[in-house]
């Protein structure tokens, strides 16, 4: 079974040279730590930076330089700053090649819910609705089940939706799954996890091919 860093490490393998990538709050932010050195990749944060770098050294933090999670960050050589309208022009205009975000629920037709639990928790959607409505390549990073042990991969989302039929791939602590033709398709299992465990933890329709490789995580 993977931890959060393992999920991030597996998603980093999806990133290609020359891509602009938007990473959401939480596990997705960790993906930046696993990009091979030498690969030409720029991270976009929707509050207004392209070329986001790592956290600053202690004492160098700048209140005017944060990411979408409000964390202090640095800017890489070649970075650019811009306003929020320009930022979402990049996102809606499909100039960003990969979007990675977290979710509370994902359905077998690619719907995603991650912004509201009616009557309990309302944080707001932030930029997530714009991101999922426009991006062609959306990967969800999340735990396979919630704290109560219930599957987060469902036939239909029970929570208010963030976007419809938009998620292409899900990477969890148990598996990599693609979404197409109204079903989850098992692509890889996490180290030490059996196909049966994934089947048991997946409430939505799951297609399992004859052979399922194990994730290669160094």
């Amino acid at each position: 079974m993977l931890d959060k860093n393992g999920i991030a490490q597996r998603i980093a393998q999806e990133v290609r040279n020359g891509w602009y990538v938007n990473l959401g709050i939480g596990i997705p932010t960790l993906v930046a730590n696993y990009i091979p050195s030498g690969m030409e990749v720029e991270f976009q944060s929707e509050n207004g930076i392209l070329g986001m770098g790592p956290f600053p050294m202690e004492g160098d933090e700048d209140a005017d330089l944060i990411n979408a999670g409000k964390q202090t960050i640095t800017a890489m050589p070649g970075a650019a700053y811009f306003d929020s309208a320009t930022s979402f022009a990049m996102i809606r205009g499909q100039h960003v090649q990969l979007t990675v975000l977290g979710a509370m629920e994902v359905s077998q037709n690619g719907d995603i819910a991650n912004w509201k639990i009616p009557g309990k928790m309302v944080k707001g959607m932030g930029g997530a609705m714009d991101l999922v409505a426009s991006a062609e390549n959306i990967i969800v990073a999340m735990m396979h089940t919630n704290r109560a042990g219930e599957s987060k991969l469902l036939s239909n989302c029970s929570l208010p939706l963030t976007g419809v039929a938009c998620v292409r791939r899900v990477v969890t602590n148990l598996a990599v799954l693609d979404i197409r033709d109204g079903a989850f398709h098992l692509v890889e299992v996490a180290p030490g996890i059996s196909v049966e465990q994934v089947v048991a933890a997946t409430a939505g329709k799951l297609v399992v091919p004859e052979s399922v490789p194990e994730m290669q995580i160094s």
């Binding site: 932030g126 609705m129 714009d130 409505a133």
Partner: peptide, 29 residues
């Protein structure tokens, strides 16, 4: 949605009364 918020402010200042966006389709928004 954040991008809609930004664009709605921009539009307000730019004399554009409304615009179409894919963000929020199929949701409460």
């Amino acid at each position: 949605p954040q991008g809609s918020l930004a664009e709605r402010c921009r539009a307000g200042g730019a004399g554009i009364p409304a615009f179409y966006t894919p963000a929020g389709y199929g949701t409460e928004v």
